[in-house]
Design a protein around this nucleic acid. Structure first.
Lengths: 228, 228
DNA sequence: AAGTGGTCTAGACCACCTT
DNA sequence: AGGTGGTCTAGACCACTTA
């Protein structure tokens, strides 16, 4: 029995609901610049473009509004939020506050086995980087950080950082992938690990800050003139 | 020509779209404890309860997921997020980070006319408090802070704080309104204003922190045993 | 293997902005 | 007043879970 409906990806997992796929595609189309900043998104056009009906489109729009990429006004529709330098900087400023806070706070609950796990993830990252497997790098990078954040026991902060991740990850995939920053990332993660092991909050704060600032600078540099 | 459809509120403004009204009502019903923590919300039930069809329900659910009150899993529906002490504390921790940051950062752009406006808002607050007009107090309190936040030029932080406001405001309206905290709020706002006028960042940081910590303590006290 | 409940489609309705 | 486009309803479809 052939299920031609399934548009499962190469990982072989089941197809997501339509609204999820539309959301991903729309996010890409906004961040890649297909839709112009400030443009009004008309549902009829999107229905045409993505070949689905209104409901999944609207759900996707709601979700992207939650991510800050759209502004929806009742009875007036959705506008694309300007993704300019100022927007990205505002996100990274907030990110830094939260990342540093959570990384320091995780020390309260950090056990030996957690440090072991982090070191293990780090090792995997380093070997993925050596093999130039950047997809694995992205995933391991994320796992490294979310392991730390989850230890901090702060659901709100975690949720905000997850939201940002969607956005940043899409930007990374759109503009220059396989960043040559892997070597730097390895250094910075090592510094964070070492600081966590030392148990010195000030050291952790510094290491986390540095990592975040560099990540921001790298992304902005990669996007370069396409911004604004 | 009678428009019996309009369920406009006492302020005389036009009725919001159905999904907005459903969202507000649902938020109330979640925060007031009508729905139990972790309960699965079935669309059919909500259709019954709010007397509307599925689409506005689903849009409201999406938006509340964005606010962190719900967790939606594809093909599995929506669960109510536990609104317990830990959840509220995680929100206030993040709030404090952002509030303090934005309040300090607004100093970069703060002009004389802005200080004048803030003093004016503060004066209005004090006279509303004297008249025990708590609805006006809530609004003026919000205006005081959003005026400051907007000067900080950080759209992401502003958006997060707005999101929190929806939640906190609903909690305030649900549990003990007309808080006896107005006198304290007046003092704390004065301290913030004075710090801003002094131009001393450390002083601003302290004043903003204190204000946020007290707000949290007050809300938790008001909710008291109803938490957990 | 049936049932429950989330998801999608098509079309009607109605608010807002033109002429 | 007419048109454009957002919003809502009803019912079909289909994924996931019970027995």
């Amino acid at each position: 029995m052939l299920k031609d409906k399934l548009q499962s990806d190469s990982l072989g997992q089941l197809a997501d609901p339509t609204y999820s796929r539309v959301r991903e595609k729309l996010r890409e189309d906004i961040l890649s610049g297909y839709f112009i900043s400030g443009e009004r998104l008309k549902i009829a056009e999107l229905v045409e473009r993505y070949k689905v009906s209104q409901m999944p489109i609207r759900e996707a729009l709601q979700q992207l509004q939650g991510e800050g990429l759209l502004i929806i006004e009742p009875n007036k529709g959705a506008h694309v939020r300007k993704v300019d330098k100022q927007f990205l900087e505002s996100i990274y400023e907030i990110r830094q506050l939260i990342e540093v806070y959570l990384t320091v706070k995780c020390m309260e609950n950090l056990k030996q086995k957690d440090l072991k796990l982090l070191n293990q993830i780090q090792k995997s990252y380093e070997s993925a980087a050596a093999k130039e497997d950047y997809t694995a790098c992205l995933q391991l990078n994320r796992r490294f950080h979310s392991t730390i954040y989850e230890l901090a026991n702060n659901s709100e902060g975690l949720q905000i950082l997850e939201k940002h991740w969607q956005l940043i990850n899409t930007l990374r995939l759109t503009y220059g992938f396989g960043s040559r920053r892997t070597a730097e990332v390895i250094e910075e993660h090592r510094a964070i690990l070492q600081a966590l092991e030392s148990g010195n909050p000030a050291e952790v704060e510094t290491a986390a800050s540095v990592h975040c600032i560099h990540a921001k600078a790298d992304l902005l540099a990669q996007m370069g003139d396409r911004l604004k």
